[in-house]
């Protein structure tokens, strides 16, 4: 059990070292048209075994609500460290689209790694694994089960 604040200080080589071969991956989460407060989102990667690998993006600024992104929090707590520097942004409202650009090492592509999106809304639902999609070199789109309408990945 560690406090998030302490963990934010531990910088880790997050996704891809600069010298490795990497691709710019575009992840788009199209939100359902719902009325209500803007949603908190966590976009993160798991390895072929389903274990948490790294965080790509977190939407929403108030850390006290991060606990509602349950799948992500569970993964992060098992991994033991996280650095959210430069990968957080505003919460996302109904009907909007969140676009995340990530440099993913070639080794992570077409290798069974999965992108997960957790969502949560104040006074609304909390969806661990709202949507999941394989990291593939061919563009793909799948439907979400909660606040995410469609999740797509392309590069």
């Amino acid at each position: 059990m560690k406090k998030l604040a302490a963990m934010l200080m531990l910088a880790t080589a997050l996704v891809a070292p600069g010298w490795a071969l990497a691709k710019d991956v575009t992840i788009e989460a199209q939100m359902v048209r719902y009325s209500g407060h803007a949603a908190y989102l966590a976009v993160y990667l798991t390895d072929p075994a389903g274990t948490y690998h790294s965080t790509l993006w977190v939407s929403g600024h108030k850390t006290k609500y991060y606990g509602t992104l349950r799948g992500w929090v569970q993964g992060v707590s098992q991994a033991g460290s996280i650095n959210l520097d430069g990968i957080t942004g505003a919460s996302v409202g109904g009907g909007e689209t969140l676009t995340v650009h990530a440099d993913l090492a070639d080794a992570l592509i077409d290798a069974g790694y999965q992108i997960h999106v957790d969502t949560a809304v104040e006074n609304g639902g909390e969806y661990a694994d709202d949507a999941m999609i394989q990291v593939t070199s061919t563009p793909a789109t799948i439907d979400g089960s909660g606040y995410v309408s469609k999740l797509s990945v392309s590069m």
């Binding site: 406090k3 998030l4 006290k64 606990g67």
Partner: peptide
């Protein structure tokens, strides 16, 4: 007023 976010034990 927010209690610091903690991970579950």
């Amino acid at each position: 007023a927010d209690s610091a976010f903690t991970f579950a034990p």
